[in-house]
Design a protein around this nucleic acid. Structure first.
Lengths: 242, 242
DNA sequence: CAAAAATAATAGTAATACTATCATATTTGC
DNA sequence: GCAAATATGATAGTATTACTATTATTTTTG
């Protein structure tokens, strides 16, 4: 689906309408039953996002989610094996959504520097509205990714789950950033590390802004985007202006 | 203690002997009873490091630790309130140890670029030996910091715990890196973000080397140090060679 | 409208994360 | 050397978590 978009030239404003008719595809072993196929499934996904955002992933349980959506714990277990898989599902969805927006926003830019700059914009901008999908609050999901994403891979099962492909979307996204870096500067020797540092670092800087302001230069006037644009263009030895 | 060292000129080889007579000081509300003051306490700290490294923080319990050290769960609870506090204790200790090594290795360097380069070395080098302290396996502790550190602050209690000073050592360390960045390039506008990105990013690159090799440029021949040295010197607009 | 599928309700289990109490060692201060 | 204090160990108990299993009740659909 996303590949198709490379041949399209659509205005940014049309993206939201388009996305409404597309489904972000996540690995089908992350769920027992596709939550997109039923009303209950959508409520599970939708309310789990706001609940995890409210209480944090550690405190979140399927029992509490059941109470919240007026359903039963056992029904939730028919959609997701456990809350770890649910987190993988939600964050995969997020990265799929991010990848879509990244590809969409950059596909019609021919200048490699402009393209990279746009990519940094998309990756680091604060998500402000939960607009695109009716049942998914993208702003809350963005907060979850900032606060919980690393818990999804900092586990003893990471190699097994990686082999199963549970991190495929994230890896593909980092790979796209890496490719854009190399397009802008083919000689650069650390493209993969710079890409992963950027994707991860953006989340970290947002976290620091909220909880450790002395550890970040970002504030109301300086955005993570400014820091990372400077960082990437300096290390690639490129001028910031096109 | 560390301040004193600024006025000393000791060989690197003497550091280990010196450290043996110094105690890394962590926040005293992280423990109920100082584990350094008893044999049991040292076994708790020492064995918790290898046990967490072996089984991961999620699977680790005080009951299992009690079994391992031939002691009782209830005795461990007299030293640490819970395993979260123990993790904060261990990681604080690690960052205190790192800060010590950083200050020691850089204090006698007058050239600001050389100093920064040395700081990157210390921060990003793989810890190979558990040499300095008899009861602490620094190599295993380094692995714990790579795999578990972010779990210590990605919690709902982070602001309260930050106010209590539980992250003071880490913040001071990042502050030192920030100061060195500004010493080398006073005009640079994102010193705090570059410092936090480096300290955090080094851990992340080590993790990626172990589990997501496609997301990093680091390998057996390229060290995280090489990437971060290039990254910092480029963004500070400095030449790598002194 | 009957059969199938989805959901809800209930019960039960093993493990976790503790707290409380009491018993027994070990240390120490006189 | 002994009593008092302190440290450690053993046992028991609780609420919660993270499930699994079974059965009952709705809802959907051919």
């Amino acid at each position: 689906m996303i590949v198709l978009l490379l041949f399209l030239r659509l205005k940014y404003s049309e993206m939201q309408n388009l996305l409404k008719n597309l489904k972000v595809v996540v690995h089908d072993k992350l769920y027992l039953k596709d939550p997109e196929t039923s009303d209950l499934g959508k409520r599970i996904v939708g309310e789990s996002i706001t609940l995890i955002d409210d209480m944090g992933f550690e405190c979140f349980t399927f029992k509490k989610l059941g109470d919240r959506i007026g359903s039963n714990e056992s029904s939730i277990y028919r959609y997701f094996e456990n809350k770890h898989k649910l987190l993988l599902y939600l964050t995969s969805w997020y990265w799929g959504w991010m990848e879509y927006r990244l590809v969409f926003a950059t596909n019609n830019i021919s200048d490699s520097k402009e393209k990279l700059k746009k990519a940094i914009d998309i990756l680091s901008e604060e998500v402000k509205e939960d607009s695109t999908y009716s049942h998914i609050d993208e702003k809350a999901l963005n907060a979850i990714v900032i606060n919980e994403y690393s818990k999804s891979y900092l586990t003893k099962e990471v190699d097994k789950e990686n082999k199963e492909g549970f991190f495929a979307i994230y890896k593909r996204l980092v790979g796209r950033v890496k490719d854009m870096i190399l397009e802008a500067q083919p000689d650069y020797g650390f493209a993969a590390s710079l890409a992963s540092t950027t994707v991860e670092g953006v989340l970290h800087q947002h976290f620091l802004m909220q909880h450790f302001s002395s550890l970040t230069s970002c504030s109301k006037t300086v955005a993570p985007k400014d820091f990372f644009t400077d960082l990437l263009f300096s290390s690639l030895n490129l001028e910031t202006h096109a």
